[in-house]
């Protein structure tokens, strides 16, 4: 009886140690990959940040209004530092995932495979959002400047509408890319966009018919007056 107990205990301990011995190299490999990832991500952050500073990326972001957006979102870091930090975390996360796969745990491996398959979509969505916000900012400012210089009423309203439309469009595109509630996002976007446009058309064309006529008349009259009154040759 005692023999069989000690045998069983020894067998269990053997199995445990065997499992530990099998797991340990994987764990060590995972830790090593994590450490390498940490160093590599840190180096990459420093290099990318330096390159962006030399390439005057912050000034470029200033001129395109990206820094302003960051400021509005209460992000106090510079765009180049932000880009470096984002890259650091993405690289580190990838290494962590690679490290975890070294553990050779079935469920984790499956999750990691899914993560790496999803990564390009995440990148694409982030890029769409970034491009959308930059474009929204750029075009809304262009609309504001054009409206102010043309002496059009409510220039800020026009600018805001332009910004909102592009932001909504890019947000919907990003969600579609991430495949989050794809059909709902698409339907919501079509309904919202269509409703806004139809609403504006009805408000301007039917509800505000007289106001619309007044605005158009005033614009045309103003243009005519400008032509008549301003004979100034600026050049």
């Amino acid at each position: 009886m005692s023999g069989s107990f000690s045998e069983k205990l020894m067998r269990a301990l053997d199995t445990f140690f065997e499992a530990v011995m099998q797991f340990l190299p994987g764990l060590l490999a995972a830790l090593l990959i994590f450490a390498m990832g940490l160093v590599f991500a840190w180096l990459l952050r420093v290099i990318v940040r330096r390159i962006l500073v030399v390439a005057r990326f912050d000034r470029f972001c200033d001129s395109w209004g990206a820094s302003q957006i960051l400021g509005q979102a209460d992000v106090r870091t510079t765009p180049s530092a932000l880009a470096g930090a984002s890259l650091f975390w993405i690289v580190l996360l990838s290494f962590v995932m690679a490290g975890l796969s070294a553990l050779e745990v079935g469920v984790i491996s499956q999750l990691i495979t899914q993560f790496f398959l999803y990564l390009p979509r995440l990148f694409a969505a982030l890029l769409i959002l970034l491009a959308g916000f930059l474009l929204a900012n750029f075009l809304s400012r262009a609309a504001l400047l054009a409206a102010v210089n043309a002496h059009v009423p409510s220039p800020r309203g026009i600018s805001l509408v332009v910004k909102l439309l592009i932001a909504i469009l890019s947000f919907a595109m990003a969600l579609e890319q991430l495949q989050i509630a794809k059909s709902i996002v698409l339907a919501a976007f079509i309904i919202t966009f269509g409703a806004v446009m139809l609403g504006l058309a009805i408000a301007f064309g039917v509800g505000g018919k007289d106001v619309a006529r007044q605005i158009l008349e005033r614009q045309l009259k103003q243009r005519e007056e400008t032509r008549r009154d301003d004979e100034l040759s600026h050049l």
Binding site: H151, T226, D230, E231, L232
Partner: peptide, 8 residues
């Protein structure tokens, strides 16, 4: 002489 719309 030139017409100039200063008010505008």
């Amino acid at each position: 002489p030139l017409q100039v719309n200063v008010d505008r």
